[in-house]
C-alpha cells in the first residue's frame, strides 16, 4: 500500500488531500474569496493560505485517520500558478517532509487535474479539456507526454469569465463562475458575441474586450439583462471549447473526452460536450466540484503515480515555478 499526501495552493484555493492506492481518504479545502469586482492578489492569497494551512493539514490527517508515519510521500504543486502562494505551500510541504522523514515530490498542477480525472472517472485514454482560471488546453497522451493539441492563444476561459463577473459586479462567493452559471440558467435572450476559433486554438480576449465595452451599456439601456449576458457568454465560449475538443478528437481519432479544471464542473459545459459526444458516438467523462476545482487529492494522486514509477524530488530540487507547461513532464507511469 502506498499513501501519498498532496499539497495544492497555486491559486486562491488551499487544499490538502490524502490518497491510498486510488482511494481518497481525505480532501479538505479552503477558498480565499474577494469582494465583488475584485480579483485575488498574490500576496493576499499567500497570506490567506499561510493562515489556514496548518488547520487544513490537521483536518486532512484526522479525516483520513492517519498519523504522519503512515504517509509514504509528500507531494506538492511545483507549478504553474502564482508565485507567492506556491512558495507558501511548498515551504510547508518541505518542512513536514523533513519533520516526518518522508520523500518529497514536485507535481505539475495540470497533470494533477488529468490524473485525478482519470482516477475518478476511469477514463482510459481520453482527450482532455482542461479549463480553469489560468488554463485552457486540449490535451491528448502520446509517446510519454500529455501533448497540447489546442489551447488559448491569449487568456484562459476562466479568466474571461472571472473578469466578466467583475465588470458587472457578480459575487465571488463561492466563485464567480458558479454564480455566472446560476444566472445563465435564468437568461433567455442570446446576444451575439465574437466567436474565435483558429484551427484547434481559441481566443477569448476579443470577447472580453467586447463585453467589457458593451455590457454596462446594454444593461443600462435595457437591451438585455445580466442573466442574458451570462447565458450568451456561456453559450459562446463553451461552444468554442466543444468545437476545438471535437477537432482534436477528429485529429487524434479519440472516442473519449475528459473535462477537468475549475470551469469543468459547469453543468452547461458538460451538457454541451455530452451532446457532441453523443453525435460522435464518443463517451464523456466529467467530475463534480470536489475534484474539478483545485484540491489536494489531485496532487496526491499524480504524486502517487510518479512515486510508484520511481520518481522523487530531492530537497535542493524542490523549487516552484510560475510557468510549467503540461507537455514538459515526461510521463513515466503510462505506456
Amino acid at each position: 500500500m502506498t499513501v501519498v499526501i498532496g499539497f495544492e495552493g497555486s491559486a486562491n484555493k488551499i487544499g490538502i488531500g490524502i490518497i491510498r492506492d486510488g482511494e481518497v481518504l481525505s480532501n479538505p479545502r479552503r477558498t480565499y474569496i474577494t469582494p465583488p469586482g475584485q480579483g485575488f492578489m498574490p500576496s493576499d492569497t499567500a497570506r490567506h493560505h499561510r493562515a489556514v494551512i496548518l488547520t487544513v493539514l490537521k483536518e486532512a490527517l484526522e479525516q483520513a485517520g492517519l498519523k504522519p508515519a503512515d504517509v509514504d510521500c509528500v507531494a506538492y504543486t511545483k507549478g504553474p500558478g502564482m508565485g507567492a502562494p506556491l512558495v507558501t505551500v511548498a515551504l510547508v510541504a518541505r518542512t513536514v517532509a523533513q519533520l516526518w522523514g518522508k520523500p518529497l515530490l514536485g507535481v505539475n498542477h495540470c497533470i494533477g487535474h488529468i490524473e485525478m480525472g482519470r482516477l475518478i472517472t476511469k477514463a482510459n485514454n481520453p482527450t482532455v479539456l482542461y479549463v480553469s482560471g489560468g488554463n485552457t488546453q486540449v490535451i491528448a497522451y502520446s509517446e510519454r507526454r500529455y501533448r497540447i493539441f489546442g489551447e488559448t492563444i491569449d487568456i484562459a476561459v476562466g479568466n474571461c469569465l472571472d473578469r466578466f463577473a467583475r465588470v458587472i459586479k457578480i459575487s465571488n462567493d463561492p466563485s464567480p463562475g458558479y454564480n455566472i452559471e446560476q444566472m445563465a440558467k435564468k437568461g433567455s435572450q442570446y446576444m451575439e458575441l465574437p466567436y474565435t476559433v483558429k484551427g484547434m486554438d481559441v481566443s477569448f480576449s476579443g470577447i472580453l474586450s467586447y463585453i467589457e465595452e458593451a455590457a454596462n451599456k446594454m444593461l443600462s439601456s435595457g437591451q438585455c439583462t445580466a442573466e442574458d449576458l451570462c447565458f450568451s457568454l456561456q453559450e459562446t465560449v463553451f461552444a468554442m471549447l466543444v468545437e476545438i475538443t471535437e477537432r482534436a478528437m477528429a485529429h487524434c481519432g479519440s472516442q473519449e473526452v475528459l473535462i477537468v479544471g475549475g470551469v469543468g464542473c459547469n453543468v452547461r459545459l458538460q451538457e454541451m460536450m455530452g451532446v457532441m459526444c453523443d453525435e460522435r458516438g464518443a463517451k464523456l467523462f466529467a467530475t463534480d466540484e470536489r475534484f474539478c476545482i483545485d484540491n489536494g487529492a489531485m496532487i496526491a494522486q499524480a504524486g502517487w503515480e510518479m512515486f510508484r514509477s520511481g520518481q522523487v524530488t530531492e530537497l535542493e530540487d524542490s523549487w516552484i515555478t510560475q510557468r510549467y507547461r503540461t507537455d514538459e513532464v515526461e510521463v513515466t507511469w503510462r505506456d
Partner: peptide
Amino acid sequence: EVRLRGRKRSMVG
C-alpha cells in the same frame, strides 16, 4: 510573440 505567449502565460488556477 505568439509562441512566447504560450510559454509565458501566467497559468494561474
